[in-house]
Design a protein around this nucleic acid. Structure first.
Lengths: 213, 213
DNA sequence: GGCACTCTATGAACAGCGTTCAAAATTGAT
DNA sequence: ATCAATTTTGAACGCTGTTCATAGAGTGCC
């Protein structure tokens, strides 16, 4: 009876996600998980090698869900017959913002963990999920007629997505809480606006001769 | 004799910065600091309330230096008579990239710490330093003739800087180490290119009717 | 049932962490 | 030299992640 090994792992991950969301990475404690799951500390280590693996598993679930909501948002627009690139990119960004807002504690934890991870290990499942996000954006850019080859369009997609990401994460560090959401959205509107306008006018090919050192 | 209270604080901060740079936030340990500074654990807590305050002080020093190097880079271009906006923004971004590369361990720590901090406290010295960085960018944008009012120009500066920041931090999470630097710089060139082109063509005022729910 | 064997669950124990604070050492004034 | 004030000290506390000998639960076989 009781729970399967897989089921218990799911339960642990659900608890872990809740803990992360409430208090960030420093709130993810082996003893708390064990207590809430009704098992012993040792059993947690039977299911996962260490807490990092738990954290990692939670993050992958989050990234997976983010990708799914992004795809769903794009599918919605498709169904409505919306083809305008700017409109679709803004919708994509909105999905991202909503997702981050819905995970106030665990999203920062994803980023911090991701940074630690990347400096130690090579590419893995993480990067695959991030690439999936890039691909969605690249797909949207393909619809716009910017005269970009595949490489350049992929670069533009990564650039755009990284920029949105930067705005969102920087925004959550900014001053007041009430004005945060507005500020973030204004920045995103501005970014997407100039980005699309810039691409339309060939800004993607305008090189300066400046190089980093 | 020996060291002044202030001098010892400086020494502790120098040690702390080195520790952070070597192993990130998790490498900042009271006992290690004490040992390397030739004092006892308790004395560290005599100089600083806790390790968070040490970390915070290190971060403020870093942000301060970053602002200084940014200003220096701008002054250099001024002396050379360079007024081209795109050129100057790229130089600013290059200064940022170099700075991050020079602080591989402590810069991520700045970001993670900053995020934790913002969710707990209100604005403080941190934000003042970040605003100083925004102001530099805003100053550069003022030189370009984009027909922006002060508010809109400030928004554009924050947007641009957050975007660069996002590219840099996302870039350091990406795949291979050798291609990282190139990828980051390509993204920055693309971003700045379309940004300037977009501003020139009034992209900053192009609104879509999409709003985040 | 009885037995042997495998696998899982357990939680006390260990090493390390940030932090505290009574006691010792140092300093400074008289 | 004496005493008060200040600073330094490091053992001790409570917490952490993690381990591993031990106890227990399941399974197949006779």
């Amino acid at each position: 009876m009781a729970l399967d090994k897989e089921e218990m792992s799911e339960k642990v991950l659900a608890i872990a996600e809740a803990l992360l969301n409430e208090g960030g990475a420093e709130n993810l404690k082996a003893r708390t998980i064990a207590e809430q799951a009704g098992i012993s500390v040792g059993s947690v280590y039977n299911l996962f090698a260490d807490l990092d693996e738990v954290h990692r598993a939670v993050n992958i679930r989050l990234l997976d869900r983010l990708g799914a909501t992004g795809l769903a948002a794009m599918a919605d627009l498709e169904r409505q017959g919306v083809t305008d690139v700017q409109h679709r990119i803004l919708a994509m960004a909105a999905a991202y913002v909503r997702f981050v807002e819905a995970h106030p504690g665990s999203w920062p934890a994803v980023l911090a963990f991701n940074r630690r991870r990347a400096t130690r290990l090579g590419p893995d499942a993480y990067d695959a999920l991030l690439d999936a996000l890039f691909d969605i954006v690249a797909g949207v850019l393909k619809a716009g007629d910017f005269g970009l080859d595949d490489d350049r369009r992929a670069l533009a997609a990564r650039t755009l997505w990284s920029s949105v990401h930067g705005i969102v994460t920087s925004g959550y560090v900014a001053n007041s809480n009430s004005r945060q959401a507005d500020e973030i959205w204004h920045q995103i509107e501005l970014l997407v606006g100039v980005f699309v306008k810039g691409l339309e006018h060939g800004g993607a090919f305008a090189h300066a001769e400046t190089k980093p050192e």
